[in-house]
Simulated scan of single mutants.
Amino acid sequence: MSTPLEAIGGRRSLSAVTADAPTHEELLPLVAACARVADHGALRPWRLIEVRGDSRSRLGAAFAAASARLAAEAGAEPPSAAELAKLAGKPLRASLLIAVVASHRLSDKVEDWEQDVTAAGVGHALSLLLSHAGWGVMWRTGTFTRTPEVHRMHGLTDSEALLGWLYVGGVPAGAKPGTRLPIDPAAHLTAL
């Protein structure tokens, strides 16, 4: 078992994963652990949505619809059939997508931006836990994350904002460890 420092230091994003994915039951203890993320006022201003099976195709259709609408609004050429098909296929890159949603709560003390930070912390913590459990994970965002079409497809309320999706699957055989250039921690940790 690795230490927390080793687990975080060894984390990597996997853009390609196998069709394997954790079950709903396997996700539950990981989601429960995410409730420990810093949360001013203990508002729990987040929720996670499992996107599996045909729901992934519905998400792809929402991407394509958003792309066509945005092009029309900009007075641009409509996307080609090939471009729309490519967009529609993006959510099919993994068997499981987990939508990370900021669910803003009414609060006199805790502003929406702070609630967004908590929800993002949950998404990151879940990605670390999934990675540590041996799953391949990549947090994806993009142009369509905040579009009305994608908002509706997820059934979000007016007080919710989508922060992106964790694409989750098995780690392909022969996947190489992730590498990042080392940082000088002293350049990122300064005294006041």
Rank of each mutant, 00 (worst) to 15 (best):
E73F: 00
W139A: 01
E6T: 11
H104I: 11
P148L: 04
E111W: 13
W165K: 04
R36F: 05
A68F: 03
A7P: 00
K86Q: 15
K86C: 12
G155P: 02
V122M: 04
G155W: 12
L96T: 10
A175T: 14
S13P: 06
R69F: 02
A71C: 10
L128M: 13
A99N: 11
E26M: 11
G89M: 05
H104W: 06
G89H: 07
L92G: 09
V101M: 05
G75Q: 07
L181Y: 10
L97A: 00
A64C: 06
P45I: 07
H104Q: 07
L163Q: 09
L84Q: 14
R52L: 14
V168K: 01
R47A: 09
L27K: 08
S107N: 04
V150H: 01
A61N: 05
H151A: 13
L5M: 11
S103V: 09
G164S: 12
A68T: 15
T141N: 02
S67Y: 02
I183D: 08
G178N: 15
L92H: 11
P22W: 05
G121F: 10
E25Q: 14
A173G: 09
S95L: 00
T179E: 10
V168Q: 00
P177G: 13
R12N: 09
V17C: 12
T179W: 06
D184C: 06
P148A: 14
A133P: 00
A19C: 05
G60T: 07
P29F: 12
A99S: 13
S15I: 08
A74H: 06
T3A: 13
T190V: 11
P79R: 12
S55G: 13
T143H: 06
L97T: 01
G164N: 07
G136C: 04
I8C: 02
L126S: 02
L96Q: 09
A74V: 07
F63Q: 01
A88R: 15
L126H: 01
L162N: 12
R12P: 00
V150C: 06
G9F: 13
S159P: 01
V31G: 09
A102L: 00
A85Q: 12
R52H: 09
F63R: 01
P45H: 11
L28H: 03
D116A: 08
A68D: 04
T118M: 08
R58E: 15
Y167S: 13
V17Y: 08
A88Y: 03
W135Q: 03
E111C: 05
A119S: 12
L87A: 03
S2A: 10
T3C: 07
G10M: 13
A64F: 01
D108C: 04
A186Y: 07
D184K: 14
A33L: 14
M1I: 03
L130N: 01
E77K: 05
A72M: 07
A62G: 02
A102T: 02
E111P: 06
G123F: 00
E149R: 02
A62S: 10
